[in-house]
């Protein structure tokens, strides 16, 4: 598959400090890629460079084969952007706002504007002033302006900020729909890990300006079981003898065992006279993995220093 967007050796230096260090990343059509990282890792800087708000120090961004460095206007004409809270002109109606942005793209007709308004379900209030809208309405309008010109690439920075649970769900389903039906490549940065987990096919993790991991969400995960038994020491001994890796977790132990091994395990525990309180499958959340990979983020780092 040909990537829609390629970041090539992207670097950004601000006052001799390397904020982004040699970032390489490809984004594919029909895929939703999540962009994760602790605060200050360089997520926002990367996104701002991709949409033309900041200039890269080195490297290039290629969108559908067009380099942003060489041909900014053509490259960016395929990108739809929502940067944080979409700030609109509050003194104008939602429709006038859309008209304003439509004029800045080539070939967006009045019919297309009406279409998009219907898609995001705002027909009833589109002619009211944006100042009267709720945050959820503004987010919808933000989405509408990003979709006007039928972008091949949609880039979203903290898109679900301020949406209620129903709104988040609707938003997620909508993104999935346009990714699948129109083959749009979507790039989402968010702090809400559970959100990313539900939404994305693929996750890129950045720390200190470097890309530390890219993984597919569909990848089979290792299976873990949570076991609580006393005496704990003996249980641990038994498990390590059986060739499992064991780590303590809350009151019990976390074991990398497969489902079919569990009955035997329990049997051996009972045979050894252990008291078994709980045996349950344990799914490592993205949060656990994220914290493992990034070392607990900045607050933990600050304490360690």
């Amino acid at each position: 598959m040909k990537p829609v967007v390629e970041l090539k050796n992207l670097s950004k230096t601000i006052r001799s400090k390397k904020i982004i260090d040699n970032l390489n990343l490809s984004l594919y059509p029909g895929q939703i890629t999540g962009f994760l990282g602790p605060n200050g890792a360089g997520k926002t800087t990367t996104i701002r460079m991709m949409v033309g708000l900041m200039k890269q120090t080195e490297g290039d961004i290629v969108i559908e084969g067009v380099s942003l460095r060489d041909n900014f206007e053509e490259g960016l004409s395929k990108v739809g952007v929502i940067v944080e809270n979409p700030e609109m002109y509050k003194f104008m109606s939602g429709y006038k706002n859309l008209l304003h942005f439509a004029r800045m793209h080539k070939g967006v007709t009045k019919e297309r504007i009406d279409d998009v308004v219907r898609q995001v379900g705002m027909q009833n209030r589109i002619h009211e002033k944006v100042g009267t809208y709720s945050l959820g309405m503004r987010q919808r309008l933000g989405l509408a302006q990003a979709l006007l010109h039928r972008p091949k690439f949609l880039i979203l920075d903290e898109p679900t900020n301020g949406l209620d649970p129903a709104g988040i769900r609707e938003f997620r389903q909508y993104l999935r729909k346009i990714a699948e039906t129109e083959g749009v490549s979507v790039f989402v940065s968010s702090h809400m890990l559970s959100e990313i987990e539900l939404m994305c096919d693929r996750i890129a993790i950045i720390q200190n300006g470097k890309l530390i991991d890219i993984r597919e969400m569909s990848e089979a995960r290792e299976s873990f079981y949570y076991i609580e038994a006393t005496p704990a020491e003996k249980a641990k001994q038994l498990l390590t003898d059986g060739g499992f890796t064991v780590e303590p977790f809350t009151d019990g132990l976390l074991v990398n065992a497969e489902q079919h091994q569990i009955p035997d395990l329990v049997e051996s525990f009972i045979a050894e006279g252990l008291q078994v309180f709980a045996v349950q499958p344990h799914r490592k959340t993205l949060e656990d993995e994220f914290l493992e990979m990034t070392g607990g983020g900045q607050i933990a780092e600050a304490y360690a220093k």
């Binding site: 033309g52 490259g75 960016l76 942005f101």
Partner: peptide, 13 residues
């Protein structure tokens, strides 16, 4: 107003 972000992320130099 913060609208500069919306204004400059367009295919217009």
């Amino acid at each position: 107003q913060g609208t500069i972000k919306m204004l400059l992320t367009r295919p217009v130099k």
